[in-house]
Design a protein around this nucleic acid. Sequence first.
DNA 1: GGCAGTCATTGATCCAGATCAACGAGTATA
DNA 2: TATACTCGTTGATCTGGATCAATGACTGCC
Lengths: 238, 238
Amino acid sequence: MSNRLKSAPAVSRTQILAEFVRDYLPGARADVAAGELGHIALPMRVAGGRTITTDRTSNAFVYLASGATKLIAKASNGREQIVAFHFAGELVSVPGKSCHSYNLAALVDCDALTMPADELLAIARGDPDFLETLLQNTIGALHRCRDKAVGLGRKNAQERLADFLVGMAMRIGQDQEGACLINLPMSRRDVGDSLGLTIETISRQFGELRELGLVKTAGRSQVFLPDIAGLRNLAGYI
Amino acid sequence: MSNRLKSAPAVSRTQILAEFVRDYLPGARADVAAGELGHIALPMRVAGGRTITTDRTSNAFVYLASGATKLIAKASNGREQIVAFHFAGELVSVPGKSCHSYNLAALVDCDALTMPADELLAIARGDPDFLETLLQNTIGALHRCRDKAVGLGRKNAQERLADFLVGMAMRIGQDQEGACLINLPMSRRDVGDSLGLTIETISRQFGELRELGLVKTAGRSQVFLPDIAGLRNLAGYI
DNA sequence: GGCAGTCATTGATCCAGATCAACGAGTATA
DNA sequence: TATACTCGTTGATCTGGATCAATGACTGCC
């Protein structure tokens, strides 16, 4: 799992494309797929903190060869809601025109491949396997977003943080037989912006979970979870 | 638009299937498509208030030939969050195994067609047009869910209700040159469960919007919006 | 058309988390 | 290794929406 956070530079731009083909078009001959995708896919290396730019006028897909990102929605008054985090190997669906303005920002140095959604779909029409992978991927994102909506609409601060930590443990944690070590690539502010809470509330809830013996922290990013099952109980799942 | 809320009975179960084919597989020969789908698709008529049952062990799709539904997530302590409303002609993606338990409930009498997701996808692999339609549909649902997450995470009660009413106006409203008449098929409780608020707060915010001249109500379900643009301004969009 | 039951509204009070404020701990730069 | 600066923690106070409570208005059923 530790490679999910790899931030070592991919050697070249063509290699980013090749990794995407390997991950999402395993049946395709690499040269053929790369040829078609090469015209619409823009590979890029993005420094942590910068925005991964996509055409804002329509939907886009971004493949993440390495690194970690946050997908941010902006509402009025500068309020920000992080709607999803993504890690190496994942494909992100970035909304274009919508009620809110969406941005994909790099949490650490990233290698990314941006593609306009309609052009990617035009290519995918020729490859049912790929189309189905895209669909399965999108269904997964939809269901994660719905689970998130439950938290934002109906859970208290402690449940939200427990939920977040369990989710991160599963996605980027180093499993240690029921326990787990996580190296969070995002700040407390990011956690707050993701859970609809303030930075102060996040800090206090970390304190509570620490007192409950469910969390140990070291420095700003190291989090150790000695009892994943216990955290799950707190998370308000049914 | 008024047919989006049609609740007159569809004549037969085969007709529900035929409507799905017409809406989502326009290129397919109806008899061929119906033959394949016939083995996996379960047509049903469901009375308002009842649950549209799907196999809970895996994801499902539900096509709504007529009526209106709410997709409910249950968290612990009986807390409920409505993650989406759906109307006639729409295809709903219902999560199976997840952190929360999901149910699709009929708001009014519905004609529905339930299909296991993996079996539907197996059929769709033979038809790129259909697969692409499913994907576009799911991307749309994902982006609506993200916009909803922004509201749940970062907006106050008034913005949430304004947002909700604008959304309903676009989906089931009868447009009247900048104004709009809506016949809400859901209760105040449902509106609250969708916006992460209580029934009392919904009621108070309806009062506020009424005083602002942005909403007129008649009975429990009739809502008139004289100034959609004004509501949009309140909704906290960027 | 009267009655029952559910749903919506309104008012009073409470509380979880926001906001405001100050301080401490990491991290980066010279 | 000192310095500056951002990030995280902790405390005091405030507030929007929840909760508790009571009343009023539809809707459906005899």
